Amino acid sequence: MEKKKVAVGMSGGVDSSVAAWLLKEQGYEVIGVTMQIWQQESEQVQEEQGGCCGLSAVEDARRVAAMLDIPYYVMNFRAEFQKNVIDYFTEEYLRGHTPNPCIACNRYVKWEALLKRSMAIGADYIATGHYARIRQLPNGRFALQKSAAEGKDQTYALYNLTQQQLARTLMPVGDYTKQEIRAMAEKIGLRVADKPDSQEICFIPDQDYAGFIERERKGAVPPPGNFVTEDGKVLGRHKGITHYTIGQRKGLGIALGVPIFVTELRTETNEVVLGTNDQVFGTELYGDRLNFMSIPELYGELEVTAKIRYNHKGAPCTIQKAGDDRVFCRFHEPVRAITPGQAVVFYDGDIVAGGGTIL
């Protein structure tokens, strides 16, 4: 029987490197692929930032591929990344939302574009080093299952993958802990065994989101405006809504004698609403741009656990349809900082039922 061919997205990090090794050990014909998606800066800058998609990543991935004796390619996905990630990221911020660009990148670049390109070179599957597992359920649908690595699970950022993408994806790392993955890398002599994990948003290494948006949109960003209370009382001046997100406390540049937080961004009046910590909590949200995974669609009410940001532990809630491509979610207890633009992901135990974008 001919061995199945799999294209592994190699970032130069320990997880994707071990993923390639594991699949080769399992008998797959492995091809290494690194996606060039945004890199323009010098190799030295990228090396300092430790990013997952930069120029130094290519050299690390190339060395790993050579050591594993697998073919290796670098594919240019800059156009796809600009359209589906950077343009989306800046547009959402200008709308007063706080987007998650990694989710968009996963769905449209690391899967849609890579899968298409990999199929064109004869691959049967693509694979990544994500901490997640793929299961085919009794109803025939493919769904993500939480990783065996507690605290490393990445299913939240992958909820938007389609059935076709899941059916053609392998995630060998999901069955192991991070310590086990690093131990494997050391055992087989990979130089990247101790390489730090990438952090934050890869295309904004200095984490100055507002500055990035201003450069990207050539200065067409919202001007300074008023900090206000919920009922409209002016408290001071803000630097522009792209500098703020729901729940933010630091960097407000205003002192009222009590702890204050951003509770709302009003783009139509260019106002940033401030309030107490209690005012940051809520019990309801609406979501759109839905993708259901373990079920074909939502009927009636469903009890799930919902995560409203990557590092949120999840909270019990009831969800139901609220029109075409819209869901209503009511939490059993108040949750902190429900943020428009972020993903809400629904779990049935450790299986991803689906998710959407918070309105």
Results as ranks from 00 to 15, higher is better:
Leu256Gln: 09
Thr229Leu: 00
Lys239Ser: 00
Ile260His: 01
Gln199Ile: 13
Ile254Tyr: 13
Lys239Asp: 00
Ile213Ala: 05
Leu190Glu: 10
Phe261Val: 02
Phe261Asp: 00
Gly247Phe: 09
Pro224Trp: 05
Asn226Gln: 14
Gly189Ser: 04
Gly211Phe: 06
Gln207Pro: 01
Ile188Leu: 08
Lys187Val: 04
Val234Cys: 04
Gly211Asn: 11
Gly257Trp: 02
Lys250Thr: 11
Tyr244Trp: 02
Gly174Trp: 06
Glu216Ser: 03
Pro172Asn: 03
Thr177Cys: 07
Pro259Gly: 08
Lys178Arg: 10
Gly253Tyr: 14
Asp194Phe: 12
Gly253Lys: 15
Val234Ser: 04
Gln199Asp: 12
Thr177Gly: 09
Ala167Cys: 11
Ile246Pro: 04
Pro259Arg: 09
Ser198Phe: 12
Ile204Val: 12
Gln248Thr: 12
Arg182Cys: 10
Val234Ile: 13
Lys178Ala: 05
Asp175Val: 08
Pro259Glu: 10
Gly251Arg: 08
Asp194Ser: 15
Lys178Asp: 08
Ala185Asn: 13
Asp206Glu: 03
Gly232Gln: 09
Glu216Asp: 05
Ile254Glu: 13
Lys218Leu: 14
Cys202Lys: 02
Asp175Asn: 07
Gly219Ser: 02
Glu230Asn: 10
Ile241Ala: 02
Ala210Phe: 04
Gly247Cys: 09
Tyr176Pro: 05
Arg168Ser: 07
Ile204Gly: 01
Val221Thr: 14
Leu170Lys: 13
Lys233Gly: 00
Pro224Gln: 09
